[in-house]
Design a protein around this nucleic acid. Structure first.
Lengths: 217, 217
DNA sequence: CCTGTAATTATGCAAGTGTATAATTGAGGT
DNA sequence: ACCTCAATTATACACTTGCATAATTACAGG
């Protein structure tokens, strides 16, 4: 006798897929890719392992979906700042750079996830395609912000500048995620603005729009 | 009857440990951390799985040794350029930055390894200690190179500059490893010199000592 | 030529892996 | 109130993983 069968509630497909995807991301960020076993994911999502196969043909498919979700989340978190940013090109660029170098974009868990996926991104073509959609799109957005500055219209030069600025941002992002305690609040953003400004020959730090006061509910 | 027992040769402890460590590194760089199973490592090293337990108390210990070997290798590959570099501080810094942004330091396999280890580095204190020895030592070396420049003697300012330059180098290193085909030969080094130079207010690119002609055996 | 011993192999095991398939059951439509 | 069907659980399987232990064998010192 195996007692009683487990009770369950039916859910919409989207909610279950989301739950499984974020369970996978949570587990990878906590224990690395090897911690995201089918059984652990199911338990974290509050279902039994078999259900994963019902929504994803294979574990690899779930993994790809999780990577897509991660990259989308990180891109939006950074780009969101542009919605409330002023129209002035320098201020927009400064706001964008600063946003990339503070939470929630700077986050040790995100870096762990990013690193955990890296090898699959390099070996699985489907993962590489997801990477191209998001990561290169990010660099293009940065390039547009630079192109909007006065006096930047040589395409080749523009590309070089975008690569350099993207490199600075990536590198500092990495440093901030890896050694959060090594930087005073705001220090990383300031270094980033200084470095990107130096590359572009601008005083970006002076153009940073003042921070919005936090909501206090 | 199980046919004949496998023939073998006795080897010195150091050689066997080295062989096992580099087998592990090879496998991780090819197939990610999950590919470095005890059995696969043994086969790659030309021994049977049991021998690993003879030289390493646990697989985790072998993994730590492999990480240490990787970090040492990467640090030396970059620092080696200083031995043949001129005495002029600007030229030394330029040579160091450039060396960090071209092969063999820039190498997709190294990046894959680095990323594969990242989670263990963050969760295992022993790995974190190895990280501290090597990575932070790298940043200190960079800071020394900057301190040797004329007119850099404020310690706090020095630290900030070292962090920023290290960030630029790391970021561009990452870009170069991830997208090797995105850069023309020498382009990444040039961007790096320009960016670091901009941060420090120097024309580093002009100070780069000419490349040694390759040996042609 | 022995002989000891440490290096190496062989074998086994319990736990964990992804996946396939069959059995149940929640919930909406009529 | 029934009935249907998809959502969900349960079970099983073949394989892999790290590790332990016992059996062998290469090689140095006498």
């Amino acid at each position: 006798m195996q007692g009683e069968r487990r009770k369950f509630r039916r859910e919409g497909e989207e909610r279950r897929r989301d739950a499984l995807v974020s369970a996978a991301l949570d587990l990878i960020s906590e224990g690395g890719p090897s911690a995201a076993t089918v059984r652990a994911i199911a338990e974290r999502a509050g279902v039994t392992p078999g259900l994963i196969r019902h929504y994803f043909q294979t574990k690899e498919e779930l993994t790809r979906e999780a990577y897509r979700a991660l990259m989308h989340r990180m891109s939006s978190e950074n780009a969101a700042v542009l919605e409330a940013a002023p129209a002035d090109p320098m201020a927009r660029l400064a706001a964008f750079v600063a946003a990339a170098l503070r939470p929630p974009v700077v986050d040790p868990r995100s870096m762990g996830l990013w690193a955990g996926f890296l090898h699959q991104v390099r070996s699985d073509p489907a993962m590489a395609a997801i990477h191209a959609e998001t990561y290169l799109g990010y660099r293009d957005l940065l390039q547009e912000l630079i192109a909007a500055l006065p006096g930047h219209n040589d395409p080749a030069r523009l590309r070089t500048l975008a690569i350099a600025c993207n490199g600075v941002i990536d590198g500092l992002w990495l440093e901030g995620c890896a050694l959060p305690e090594a930087f005073a609040p705001g220090e990383l953003e300031h270094i980033g603005l200084e470095a990107v400004g130096a590359i572009l020959g601008l005083d970006l730090a002076a153009s940073l729009p003042p921070a919005m006061p936090e909501e206090t509910p």
